[in-house]
Amino acid sequence: MSFEDIYKIYWQKAFRLCMGYVNDTDLAKDLTQETFIKVFKQLSKFENKSSIGTWIFRIASNTCLRQIQKENRMPKSEFPLEMREEIIETNIEKELQFLYKCISDLQEIDRIIISLNLEGISQKEIAKIVGFSEGNIRVKIYRIKEKLIEKFKKNER
């Protein structure tokens, strides 16, 4: 698979993962760009031990984990969220916004796990990306979803 193909197929997915982690569109775009720079540089070293998707998601999530080094650059969530509220009026976007807000309240690793799960990555693959056992991932996903749904229900009331 050429780099151009990988870029087209995985950019949106990697962006959503970064967005789940930072809840900030600009920062998420930067992190996605950084991820693909790393992918571009290391593509020749990629061994087919894991699927290309797992490999890219590992790079993307590690890039997110490292981003606190740049965190001082922009305060998280509040400012961009307010701005988006002005632009986006529809209920659909508000739901999405609320989902990101709930995810960003979670612990860092939980944000990665749930983002990968919502992206449709299997529990086995998530275990490989994060470094947890599959059983642990299953329990974690169950608990995180419970929390999220609870918050959604409260929000609807």
Binding site: R58, L65, K128, I129, V130, G131
Partner: peptide, 9 residues
Amino acid sequence: RAINNKDYL
């Protein structure tokens, strides 16, 4: 950079 999150940290 392509190791899992646990090892990367």
